[in-house]
C-alpha cells in the first residue's frame, strides 16, 4: 500500500517534470513561430526577383536588396576563408601538439573568455587595427578580418571538441603501424573529426552573417549604388540594410524590412542545411 502511493507520487512528479521540459521547448518555439510567421505575412508581397536584384531606393516599391545580399555573401565567404584555416590549425595545435603543456591550458581559458566578449568590442578592435593602423580603410577585407576574429574563438573551441572526441586508441593504432604524427593527424584524426569541425564552423559562420554592431563600427555603408568590386571595396550587409529600412519614416519600408529578414533567414537556413548535409556525408563515410 505504502509503496504504491509513493509510486503514484513519484509518477506524478515525473509527469510534471516532463511537461515542464516540454513547455521549455514549446514556448520559445511558439514565440519564434509567431515572429517568423508575422514577418512572412508582412514581407512576402515584396519578395520577388526584382527585390533581390535591385539597388536601394527612396521609394519603397523600387528599393532592392542586391548590394546588401552580395555584400553579405562576399563578407561571409571571406570570413570563412580566413577563420577556418586559422581556427582549425589552432585547434589541432592545442589538442594534438600542445596537450600536455600548461601554455595550451592558459590559451584555452583565454579563448573561452574571448568567446564571451561582446561583438561591438571586436568592432572597435577592427576599426583601430584593420581600418586605421593597417590602412585597409572601410573595406570588405577589414570587415571580414573583424568578423573572423569574432568567430575564431568559437571555431577553435568547436574544432577542439571534435578533435578531442576522436578515441586515443585510433591514434595509438596509427602510431603502431609506423605512421608519423603528421600522417596520423592528416589521415586518421582529421577525417574522423571532420563532421564535428564542419558543424561547428558553419554554425559560427552563420552566426556571423547576422552580425550588425561590429560592422557598423568598422564602417559598413548604408547606401551604395553599386556592388562591391573586390576585397578593398566598400560594402554593406543585409542586417544594416534592414535596420535602415526600419528607421525610415515611410511605413511602406517596413514591408521591405520584413522581406529582407526573410532573405536573411533563408540564407542562414541554407548555410545550416549545408552544415547538416556535409556532416552526414562525412559521417556516413566512416561508418
Amino acid at each position: 500500500m505504502k509503496i504504491s502511493t509513493a509510486d503514484a507520487n513519484h509518477r506524478w512528479g515525473e509527469q510534471l517534470f516532463r511537461y515542464l521540459c516540454m513547455a521549455a521547448v514549446l514556448i520559445p518555439l511558439l514565440i519564434l513561430g509567431i515572429l517568423v510567421l508575422d514577418t512572412f505575412i508582412d514581407g512576402l508581397e515584396r519578395l520577388s526577383w526584382e527585390f533581390l536584384s535591385s539597388f536601394p531606393s527612396r521609394i519603397a516599391m523600387r528599393a532592392g536588396f542586391w548590394p546588401a545580399l552580395v555584400g553579405s555573401i562576399y563578407l561571409i565567404g571571406l570570413t570563412a576563408l580566413i577563420a577556418i584555416p586559422v581556427g582549425v590549425g589552432a585547434a589541432i595545435y592545442l589538442n594534438e601538439y600542445g596537450e600536455q603543456h600548461w601554455f595550451a591550458d592558459f590559451i584555452e581559458i583565454n579563448i573561452a573568455n574571448l568567446a564571451g566578449v561582446p561583438s561591438v568590442i571586436y568592432g572597435l578592435l577592427g576599426l583601430e587595427l584593420f581600418v586605421r593602423a593597417s590602412g585597409m580603410g572601410r573595406s570588405l577585407l577589414a570587415g571580414a578580418l573583424t568578423l573572423a576574429l569574432l568567430i575564431l574563438p568559437i571555431v577553435i573551441l568547436a574544432s577542439r571538441e571534435a578533435l578531442r572526441s576522436v578515441p586515443d586508441s585510433l591514434r595509438s593504432a596509427s602510431y603502431g603501424l609506423g605512421a608519423t604524427k603528421w600522417q596520423t593527424i592528416r589521415q586518421v584524426v582529421l577525417p574522423m573529426a571532420l563532421p564535428g569541425i564542419l558543424t561547428g564552423t558553419i554554425l559560427s559562420v552563420s552566426r556571423a552573417i547576422g552580425e550588425t554592431a561590429p560592422l557598423i563600427v568598422v564602417g559598413a555603408l548604408s547606401y551604395m549604388t553599386f556592388v562591391p568590386s573586390g576585397i578593398h571595396s566598400e560594402f554593406t550587409v543585409m542586417p544594416i540594410q534592414i535596420y535602415d529600412w526600419v528607421t525610415r519614416p515611410q511605413e511602406e519600408f517596413l514591408i521591405n524590412a520584413a522581406a529582407g529578414i526573410i532573405v536573411l533567414l533563408m540564407t542562414m537556413l541554407l548555410l545550416n542545411a549545408l552544415a547538416i548535409v556535409l556532416r552526414n556525408h562525412y559521417q556516413n563515410r566512416f561508418r
Binding site: 527612396r58 555603408l221 525610415r248
Partner: peptide, 24 residues
C-alpha cells in the same frame, strides 16, 4: 541621410557615377 540617399540615387541613375552613403 534620406536626403543624401535620394539625391545619390537619382544622380547615379542620371550620370552613372557611383556614390556611397554612410550613416555615422
Amino acid at each position: 541621410y534620406p536626403v543624401a540617399g535620394a539625391i545619390s540615387e537619382e544622380f547615379s541613375a542620371a550620370t552613372s557615377i557611383n556614390t556611397t552613403v554612410g550613416v555615422s
